[in-house]
Design a protein around this nucleic acid. Sequence first.
DNA 1: TCTGATACTTGACTCAGTCCAGAATCGGTG
DNA 2: CACCGATTCTGGACTGAGTCAAGTATCAGA
Lengths: 164, 164
Amino acid sequence: MTNSTDGAHQLLRQHGVQVTAQRLAIMRAVSSRPHSTADELADDVRRVIGSISRQAVYDSLGVLVDKSLLRRIQPAGSAARYESRVGDNHHHLICRTCGTTVDIDCAVGSVPCLTADDDHGFAIDEAEVVYWGYCPACRTDPESATPDPSTPVTSTQARSSNHE
Amino acid sequence: MTNSTDGAHQLLRQHGVQVTAQRLAIMRAVSSRPHSTADELADDVRRVIGSISRQAVYDSLGVLVDKSLLRRIQPAGSAARYESRVGDNHHHLICRTCGTTVDIDCAVGSVPCLTADDDHGFAIDEAEVVYWGYCPACRTDPESATPDPSTPVTSTQARSSNHE
DNA sequence: TCTGATACTTGACTCAGTCCAGAATCGGTG
DNA sequence: CACCGATTCTGGACTGAGTCAAGTATCAGA
């Protein structure tokens, strides 16, 4: 069983990445649930292949991102998230309440913001755009809307009058 | 000594924030060294008023951000950074090598990317843009250029052949 | 099948940030 | 100017994400 499943196997070989059950499972987990954290991915993988160490997850994810097979995004106030949509210049829209993340195509075109007004002499190679707002569910029902409970990302409120 | 220094005192009162030596010092530290981390700010503050607890730093920073007196930015792979430039819609350009961060005015105009192509029903209230690249110093002298040694932010390389 | 290279496991550790309870300070009032 | 309640600061423990290191297991080419 578990013969050369999808194109994942091929894909890894093509990019000079050694093929292991863990990596295959991670690739598949990312594809089936984009914008997941390393932790969530680890859970998914465990559900499939039984077990995997946290280190293997981080290591594999690192290799795959390095080989451009995955893309890593790190929204403020949240753990890093991974997605398999690579190669295109798309951005992200994140709900401040529940953390739901959706892909957004570039508003301006293909390579929008790579042209800063004044580059200060920097060699700019990437423009990262994150839209923040509130998703339909959270706008409608602010109380019970928590589809994705991982790190809701709220504006760090100062603890006011915390002790009684 | 240290009488009502600058407008900081007034500013805090105006925004309903209790004025303390710590907060004044933090405000001043952020102004004099934008894009610093909480830790760096704490050091600066200690140099001025002797000592401050980490909690007080985070708490004050939180209150000030909450009152829109400061702005918090959290670049991928780095601790949160603070700046006193608020109210305008400017973005940031960060060096992948040394972590140097500079302000960038909006390429498109004033409120550039708030208009996503498809908002997926979200109520978008902020567009965060981060340009990544290499600063002049790091492009010229990649070896010794490390003006700001705090969390250089390099692409998380996978540890290849780590054991001998 | 062997074998060297690469990956995975386990466990300790770092770093940024938070929580908590108690002590200190702020600032409006008599 | 002293008082007092509200707010803030201190110190220490704690959490979560991610990394480091050494040893073991697995991959893949000969």
